[in-house]
Simulated scan of single mutants.
Amino acid sequence: MNDLEPAAAVEEALRGNGISVESLSLEESVSLTYLTAFPDVEPDHGEVGRAVTALLELTGGDWEPITVEATVLRSESDVQATWRLEADWIRAYNDGALNDEELSQRVLDSLYEEGGE
């Protein structure tokens, strides 16, 4: 991680991957809310992937993996979806126990579309 405060470094990494961060907090987990560039009915998997990639890149340095709870907004008060990235998944990925496809599938399996089941 760079010399920024942890939350600022996470936000910078996300913004650098084209994620429009609305709010971010780091406590027991990362709580991330971002405004999608694709306000369709379904969330854009590529955009979710870019957010995950940004977070994974941070764990290659000094940042200890923690669970990420993400909320995707179409607009300020319109939630499109939520998704999770578990700390254990990050560790398994970094250790080589999960490949790109397996990690992606876990994140997509956690995806909950508002108005969906």
Results as ranks from 00 to 15, higher is better:
residue 52 V to G: 07
residue 53 T to V: 02
residue 53 T to G: 08
residue 53 T to W: 11
residue 53 T to D: 13
residue 54 A to V: 07
residue 55 L to Q: 06
residue 55 L to T: 09
residue 56 L to G: 11
residue 56 L to V: 08
residue 57 E to C: 07
residue 57 E to P: 00
residue 58 L to E: 14
residue 58 L to R: 10
residue 59 T to R: 02
residue 59 T to L: 03
residue 60 G to E: 15
residue 60 G to A: 11
residue 60 G to I: 08
residue 60 G to R: 15
residue 61 G to Q: 15
residue 61 G to A: 12
residue 62 D to I: 13
residue 63 W to L: 15
residue 63 W to D: 09
residue 63 W to N: 00
residue 64 E to Q: 11
residue 64 E to C: 10
residue 64 E to I: 09
residue 64 E to V: 14
residue 65 P to E: 03
residue 65 P to D: 03
residue 65 P to A: 07
residue 66 I to L: 12
residue 66 I to G: 12
residue 67 T to I: 01
residue 67 T to N: 04
residue 67 T to L: 02
residue 67 T to R: 06
residue 68 V to C: 15
residue 68 V to L: 15
residue 68 V to Y: 00
residue 69 E to N: 14
residue 69 E to W: 00
residue 69 E to Y: 08
residue 69 E to R: 13
residue 69 E to A: 15
residue 70 A to W: 01
residue 71 T to K: 13
residue 72 V to T: 07
residue 73 L to F: 05
residue 73 L to D: 06
residue 73 L to S: 01
residue 74 R to S: 07
residue 74 R to D: 02
residue 74 R to Q: 08
residue 74 R to G: 09
residue 75 S to C: 05
residue 75 S to E: 15
residue 75 S to Q: 12
residue 75 S to Y: 06
residue 75 S to H: 11
residue 76 E to N: 10
residue 77 S to V: 10
residue 77 S to G: 12
residue 77 S to T: 09
residue 78 D to Q: 07
residue 78 D to S: 11
residue 79 V to C: 01
residue 80 Q to K: 02
residue 80 Q to P: 03
residue 80 Q to I: 02
residue 81 A to L: 01
residue 81 A to E: 04
residue 81 A to K: 06
residue 82 T to I: 01
residue 84 R to S: 14
residue 84 R to E: 13
residue 84 R to D: 12
residue 84 R to P: 01
residue 85 L to C: 04
residue 87 A to R: 05
residue 87 A to L: 04
residue 87 A to T: 06
residue 87 A to M: 00
residue 87 A to F: 00
residue 88 D to N: 05
residue 88 D to I: 11
residue 88 D to H: 05
residue 90 I to D: 02
residue 90 I to A: 06
residue 90 I to Y: 01
residue 91 R to N: 00
residue 91 R to C: 03
residue 91 R to D: 09
residue 91 R to P: 04
residue 91 R to S: 09
residue 91 R to I: 13
residue 91 R to T: 14
residue 92 A to V: 09
residue 92 A to C: 04
residue 93 Y to D: 03
residue 93 Y to W: 04
residue 93 Y to C: 00
residue 93 Y to R: 08
residue 94 N to C: 04
residue 94 N to E: 12
residue 94 N to R: 12
residue 94 N to Q: 12
residue 94 N to Y: 06
residue 95 D to H: 07
residue 95 D to V: 02
residue 95 D to T: 01
residue 95 D to K: 11
residue 95 D to G: 00
residue 96 G to S: 03
residue 96 G to R: 06
residue 97 A to S: 12
residue 97 A to I: 09
residue 98 L to D: 04
residue 99 N to T: 13
residue 99 N to I: 13
residue 100 D to Q: 03
residue 100 D to Y: 01
residue 101 E to K: 10
residue 101 E to D: 11
residue 101 E to M: 10
residue 101 E to P: 01
residue 101 E to C: 04
residue 102 E to Y: 05
residue 102 E to W: 03
residue 103 L to R: 02
residue 103 L to D: 03
residue 104 S to E: 12
residue 105 Q to D: 13
residue 105 Q to H: 08
residue 105 Q to V: 04
residue 105 Q to C: 07
residue 106 R to Y: 10
residue 107 V to A: 08
residue 107 V to P: 05
residue 107 V to T: 06
residue 107 V to H: 07
residue 109 D to S: 14
residue 109 D to P: 12
residue 109 D to C: 10
residue 111 L to R: 10
residue 111 L to Y: 08
residue 111 L to F: 09
residue 111 L to H: 00
residue 112 Y to M: 05
residue 112 Y to R: 10
residue 112 Y to F: 14
residue 112 Y to K: 08
residue 112 Y to E: 07
residue 113 E to D: 05
residue 113 E to L: 15
residue 113 E to K: 09
